[in-house]
Simulated scan of single mutants.
Amino acid sequence: MPTRFVRTTRSLAHDRGRRALLGFGAAALLLAAWLTWFLFGQVTVYEVSRQARLEVQQSAHPVAALVQSRIASNALVLGQEVRAGDLLIELDAQPDKLKLKEEQSRLETLLPRIHSLRKEVAALAQAAAREHAAAQAAAQGASSRTREAAAAVDFARENERRLREESAIGGVAQIEAVRAQSETLKLDAARDALAAEQRRLSTEAEARAFQQEAQVESLRRMILSMEGDAQAAESTIARLREEIDRHQVRAPVGGTIADVAALRTGAYVAAGQKLATVVPHGGLIIVGEFAPAAVLGRIRPGQAARLRLEGFPWAQYGMIDARVVRVAGEVRDGLVRVEFEPAAQDAPRLPLQHGLPGSIEVGIEQVSPAQLLMRAAGHFDMPAPAAVVREMAAQ
């Protein structure tokens, strides 16, 4: 009688389990390899910021109006290359310009008047010196005449005494003695008159000197007053020039105008209103904004990073390698700023320029998959497997 399933029976008779053993062995090897990688392997942990962008090394400078006024002229053109100090917008400063012209005219009239008064003071000083010299000469002459009169008086008195003595003994007539006495009195009166004239000349010279000194002092007070007015005018002119200069909006740095407000000539702007943005020339850096818990104590200078630009698929254009150069120590608007230095551009098709947004990932540490699993489970980091093996070997 024929047997059913002859081939199956024959196959079971020849099967000794080698294939099964080989399968189980391969599975065991794969499991061992996976466990080895799971416990001892190292993977890189990344922190990612989707608020990253390219910026110039020097911060972009906003251009704002310093005063409230009307736009008189506007030379802003988007993309224009400017140098530091170039005039971009001129605001209306006509009232200040008129006041400046008035103060300048006032100063121009004060300075010649001050110069003229100084010359007058110098002339009066020279006249006073010459008049003082003339008064001294006149006083010397009066003194000499007074001494001459005194000498004549002395001679007359001596002559009177001698005549009186001779008249007493009858040598001369009595009338001669009387005449000598009269001459003495006349010369004595002349001497007194000359002395009085000398005092008058001295008093008049002093009075004229006081008058001239008072006049000079009055002129000096006028000069000081005018000099004060001139200094006030100069200060007002300087203030007005500064105020007029505040109406001229100039480029703070050299660079490219990257943003322009839509303002026409005649439009009014407020003080502090942003009118444009100037992006300075220079190298580019990468700036990323991270949550404080992801940055503080974890991201440090020197760590490697990679930037992916939005609008340029990384599979086609590649990524930009970078490294951390600076980490902010303070939180601003709930985020921490981290600056990166891009490596030499290895993706030449990427048009790198200021303002390009993207996302950046920073490698912060190397851990095993087991540690990652424990972290995901909400546990603390377990010791590294290698350290556990060393402890067990030591025991």
Rank of each mutant, 00 (worst) to 15 (best):
L307F: 14
F290V: 08
L350H: 01
V287E: 08
A294P: 00
K119C: 02
A387I: 03
Q57I: 12
L284E: 15
R19E: 06
Q140A: 08
E55C: 05
G378H: 07
R337A: 13
A377T: 02
L39H: 06
V153E: 02
W34P: 00
D96G: 05
G23A: 13
V43K: 12
E227T: 04
D245R: 11
G141H: 12
V278P: 10
V43I: 15
G334C: 11
E243V: 12
R162D: 00
V45Y: 06
E160G: 05
E160V: 04
H281L: 03
A60C: 00
A195G: 02
V178R: 07
M319V: 15
R162Q: 06
I360Y: 08
T184I: 01
A207R: 12
A322H: 10
R157K: 13
V336Q: 07
V153F: 02
A20G: 06
A195E: 05
A60Y: 03
R300K: 14
V63K: 10
G23D: 01
S69H: 06
A386E: 11
E90A: 13
M222Y: 04
M319H: 03
Q303P: 04
A258E: 11
E197H: 04
A233F: 03
I71Q: 09
R306L: 08
T44L: 10
S218F: 06
T184V: 02
L296D: 02
G363T: 02
A386C: 02
P348Q: 04
A370E: 12
G358F: 02
V121H: 09
P369V: 14
T9Y: 14
V77G: 01
F210R: 14
A128F: 06
A258L: 03
A262R: 14
S105I: 09
L21Y: 06
A32G: 15
R199F: 03
P280N: 02
A293C: 01
V45S: 07
F340Q: 05
